[in-house]
């Protein structure tokens, strides 16, 4: 699950120093050639990718938590199996992404350390709580829907391992949004209490989903370099508008109300126009003051710390196997 907002969280990468190598590199990117791990690349390109891919990976891993919160309480065995498979997929996607980042010369342990220390960011959307079962539906429908908008262009990213990971992820994620919508549809057609549950979830997840696309273009001028490097292909506002245009009719189909009194269809352009976004909330959550920032990081830290003796035991066993094999060969 990717959020465009992440690429705005670092410093503007410096334009690479000139020189023949840099020119050849840019020419290859311009020609839509893929850059592969051992190819020469500007250091700033490498650092930008490490930051973006690792934060994308962290988002997948932290993203397991809000939905994972409902695995034990899924209301039918079918829903339980689907939810387990979906949360498991997110773990898998985190893995594919860590693998892609590792081709750039950083170890997973170091990246995980950055997440646990709070140095690295992850998508803010996962700092919101899942309070009812409908939230599982709303996340699939809205959050995965917004993520797909962001992720599909990344399949054409100039860095080969990232692009290949994204192809795999996009293919696997195609069921995620559909299962979310199906949950919302079932609730919307259910009892009065279920309809209210669905509406309440939409009310809470709509704006955070809209904000997943990151600051408006006017406030994020430094994506130009990422565009030149073909790491990023569309601006935040372009993707946000696309998401709104496809999602509003889906809400209408469900008979649910988008929590935005200003929302209207602009007949001339054919686009839905939304009211003003409350960016102060976005920045508060980004700075660590969202409803679940502490809980999410605490959960990741606990898993890491409680797992340390297990990882050590497996590593120790592997060392013993090697020693025994060597001793047997020597005997």
């Amino acid at each position: 699950m990717y959020t465009q907002g992440l690429d705005a969280q670092g410093r503007e990468p410096e334009a690479p120093a000139g020189g023949a190598a840099a020119e050849r590199f840019q020419a290859r990117v311009d020609a839509e050639e893929k850059i592969e791990p051992k190819d020469w690349m500007p250091e700033a390109y490498r650092q930008t990718l490490i930051r973006q891919i690792s934060q994308h990976a962290h988002s997948e891993i932290v993203g397991m938590l809000p939905e994972g919160n409902w695995i034990t309480r899924a209301p039918s065995l079918r829903r339980k199996a689907v939810l387990m498979a979906k949360v498991q997929d997110e773990g898998g996607h985190g893995m594919y992404l860590y693998s892609a980042a590792e081709t750039l010369g950083i170890g997973r342990e170091e990246m995980v350390g950055q997440l646990l220390s709070g140095a690295a960011k992850y998508s803010s959307i996962f700092n919101y709580p899942t309070l009812t079962w409908a939230d599982v539906g709303a996340i699939g429908w809205l959050v995965d829907g917004a993520a797909i908008m962001n992720q599909i262009p990344l399949c054409r990213c100039s860095y080969g391992p990232y692009a290949r990971a994204m192809v795999r992820i996009c293919k696997e994620e195609s069921f995620h949004q559909r299962q979310g919508f199906e949950i919302m549809m079932t609730l919307a057609r259910g009892t009065q209490a279920q309809r209210e549950m669905a509406q309440d979830a939409l009310n809470r997840w709509w704006w955070p989903s809209i904000m997943m696309f990151g600051p408006s273009d006017a406030d994020s001028p430094h994506t130009a370099q990422s565009m030149r490097w073909k790491i990023k292909r569309f601006s935040n506002d372009e993707l946000r508008q696309k998401f709104i245009d496809v999602t509003v009719p889906q809400a209408h189909f469900l008979g649910l109300a988008i929590p935005d009194a200003q929302l209207h269809l602009d007949e001339a352009s054919g686009h839905y126009r939304i009211g003003a976004i409350d960016w102060s909330e976005f920045h508060a959550v980004l700075r660590g003051n969202g409803p679940c920032n502490r809980e999410r990081l605490a959960a990741r830290r606990a898993a890491h710390e409680n797992g340390a003796w297990v990882r050590e035991a497996a590593a120790a066993h592997a060392r013993k196997l090697k020693e025994r094999a060597a001793a047997a060969a020597a005997a």
């Binding site: 590792e102 997973r108 795999r168 990882r311």
Partner: peptide, 27 residues
């Protein structure tokens, strides 16, 4: 506690070659 990195190759169907799909960590 760090586990080394492995590269993974999958044969999709019998008759096809193993193809690189990604990596993972294992002890």
């Amino acid at each position: 506690e760090d586990w080394p990195l492995y590269e993974v190759f999958v044969r999709a169907r019998s008759g096809l070659e193993h193809k690189h799909v990604g990596s993972l960590h294992a002890a």
